[in-house]
Nucleic acid binder design. Structure first.
Lengths: 245, 245
DNA sequence: ACCTGAACACCGTTCAAGT
DNA sequence: ACCTGAACACCGTTCAAGT
């Protein structure tokens, strides 16, 4: 059966199966042959739908980014910029926490993931509407992303997975304690995330206040450059697309 | 020549050569055979000094962590906690910027890198001495690490390397513009880092002030638990070692 | 103890061949 | 257009053999 009249594969099915494999066994478990077998197909078939294996993994990462809630940045959403950023960060972290095995894929850099660009665009637009100067709005999107992805990396990227493996219940009967340690670490990470997020938003609020008192930072926004953040001017549209999630 | 009377290899030489290879061509260029060839030796020889290839890469990552300046956390250093954190973050980022190809290795999680643990310990000790409650001191070390590693990831982990490759100077003669774009992105990332770092420290300063006014947060420190951060109590020593860089 | 070559069970990707 | 098997040039790691 060389070519079936109905295609056996689709990009969606490939990505979904790859994502499930990553979630279940980690990025390293994904080989073209293994993935193809899971799809009931031979290895080279994948190359009719993707140019490289890396492209498949990029699509898996993008699918996770696509699950980040962005409703707080909608024009008609009542949340103020600070609450919106907070809720977004929490949703962002939750999306990564749901797929810890995907986090290492983020380490390959922003890449060209479309969902990442959509995120950057949404944040940028909402911040500008709230009265932030464009250059500052760009910075805010980036620095929030830094913090959230960094926390995901530090918290659940292969960290406690290794730990659980290290505590072999065979010769270590107090497996309750291993659970306790993992739970404890989780609490530490969560506390650090919450403290850091609150501090970050407090710090931004200080800068925002300095801005409005000095410039003309009303809600119609987009206008006068204030000196407060000092990144120089920049065109709005291109600024937002600079880096993806 | 089965066994030379003087060993051809040493863990140091292996790590140094691996690090040079990573810096020059990236993590993906490191194969045991390639690395061994670079060392003038056959592939399996490496297994006399390391148990797996991953262990070698961990050592490379640890060598970078070891280059982070920690002098600001020394007991006799005059810098206050806020300045110390700032200078540390800048030095931390600089260490990663010097070895952008190493950044993806951090994505494998904190692991058991000794240099990372030393860093965590230094931050913790200095924060406690400055008057932060132990639980908060732990959070601060973690959240600062989140931000710095996240920024390294977002800024120079294979981001613009790909970009430069995309602009093939053969059919794109305005290579000056490609440089301009890369330079522009670098400025955006730097601005986001500086803004975020300042905001983070401002936010922590607010919490610190709330702490001393409410509890007894003098420089002798270590004492009374305040309710401000709310992570519950925890033994000092074990808290610090929780997560590495 | 420390190196070697041979071998095992894999890889990602290309390509001619089939329909 | 979309799948196949065969093939190429690799992998990480193990192991018996040498000194």
């Amino acid at each position: 059966m060389a070519r079936p009249r109905k295609p056996l594969l689709s990009t969606e099915r490939i990505v979904a199966t790859a994502a499930a494999l990553v979630d279940a066994e980690g990025v390293e478990a994904v080989s073209t042959r293994r993935l193809a077998a899971e799809l009931g197909v031979s290895g080279p078939s994948l190359y009719n739908h993707f140019r490289t294996k890396d492209e498949i993994l990029e699509a898996v990462a993008d699918a996770v980014s696509a699950r980040i809630d962005l409703s707080m940045f909608a024009e008609d959403d009542p949340r103020d910029w600070r609450t919106a950023l907070h809720d977004w960060a929490v949703s962002y972290r939750a999306a990564l926490a749901d797929h810890p095995q995907v986090v290492p894929l983020l380490a390959r850099g922003p890449g060209r993931r479309p969902a990442g660009l959509r995120v950057a665009d949404a944040v940028f637009g909402a911040m500008v509407r709230a009265g932030w100067p464009p250059a500052q709005a760009t910075s805010i999107g980036a620095l929030m992303r830094y913090f959230v992805t960094g926390s995901a990396l530090g918290s659940f990227a292969r960290g406690f997975v290794d730990d659980e493996a290290a505590y072999d219940p065979a010769d270590y009967p107090h497996l309750g304690q291993a659970h306790l340690l993992a739970e404890r670490q989780r609490k530490v990470d969560e506390g650090a995330f919450e403290t850091g997020l609150a501090a970050l938003l407090d710090g931004l609020a200080v800068r925002y206040a300095a801005q409005v008192s000095q410039g003309s930072g009303d809600a119609s926004g987009r206008g006068t450059e204030t000196g407060a953040g000092g990144m120089g001017a920049g065109a709005a549209g291109t600024e937002a697309g600079g880096t993806g999630a």
